[in-house]
Amino acid sequence: MRALRRSGDLRATVAFNTSYVPGNSNYHFDRYDKALERFIALNHSHFEGSIRDGEAALGGWSFIPAIGALLATALTLMGIRPRLNEYR
């Protein structure tokens, strides 16, 4: 592009930068853009699959935090109760 511009051929410079003819700038950028879109789609597909697999693997474990919170509350109350009875 710079060589074309230095040569003074403005039409050729503009054509190189705006044409989709093989060998010109937009042609290569369009090929790169399409390859990047395919790469992103492939990675997105694998990511979504991994998320589904992870959710399926952890599906039965969602009740564990609730049980842990109830257990912690019960044990806390059991530990505090004797101390409170000392003040009666």
Results as ranks from 00 to 15, higher is better:
residue 79 G to Y: 01
residue 83 R to F: 10
residue 6 R to Q: 14
residue 11 R to G: 08
residue 49 G to T: 00
residue 33 D to M: 06
residue 59 G to M: 10
residue 59 G to R: 13
residue 47 F to H: 03
residue 9 D to Q: 05
residue 85 N to F: 12
residue 71 L to G: 12
residue 21 V to K: 15
residue 74 A to N: 05
residue 16 F to D: 00
residue 49 G to N: 00
residue 64 I to C: 08
residue 16 F to R: 00
residue 28 H to R: 13
residue 76 T to N: 11
residue 73 T to N: 10
residue 59 G to E: 08
residue 30 D to I: 05
residue 51 I to C: 04
residue 57 A to I: 10
residue 32 Y to D: 15
residue 79 G to K: 06
residue 74 A to G: 11
residue 41 A to R: 00
residue 86 E to R: 11
residue 4 L to C: 05
residue 68 G to W: 07
residue 28 H to I: 12
residue 52 R to E: 06
residue 75 L to I: 05
residue 86 E to F: 07
residue 32 Y to C: 14
residue 44 H to Y: 11
residue 21 V to C: 12
residue 40 I to P: 02
residue 39 F to K: 10
residue 88 R to D: 07
residue 26 N to E: 15
residue 17 N to F: 07
residue 8 G to T: 01
residue 53 D to R: 03
residue 40 I to R: 06
residue 55 E to A: 09
residue 4 L to D: 01
residue 46 H to K: 04
residue 9 D to S: 02
residue 4 L to K: 02
residue 76 T to Q: 04
residue 83 R to W: 05
residue 24 N to E: 07
residue 10 L to E: 15
residue 16 F to Y: 02
residue 75 L to S: 03
residue 9 D to C: 00
residue 59 G to H: 10
residue 59 G to L: 08
residue 13 T to K: 02
residue 29 F to Y: 14
residue 30 D to W: 10
residue 67 I to F: 09
residue 17 N to T: 10
residue 10 L to A: 15
residue 86 E to S: 14
residue 23 G to P: 00
residue 44 H to M: 13
residue 5 R to A: 07
residue 47 F to D: 03
residue 56 A to I: 08
residue 28 H to V: 10
residue 47 F to N: 08
residue 38 R to G: 01
residue 81 R to F: 12
residue 84 L to N: 04
residue 84 L to Q: 09
residue 14 V to N: 02
residue 50 S to Y: 01
residue 59 G to W: 03
residue 76 T to I: 09
residue 48 E to P: 01
residue 84 L to D: 04
residue 31 R to T: 03
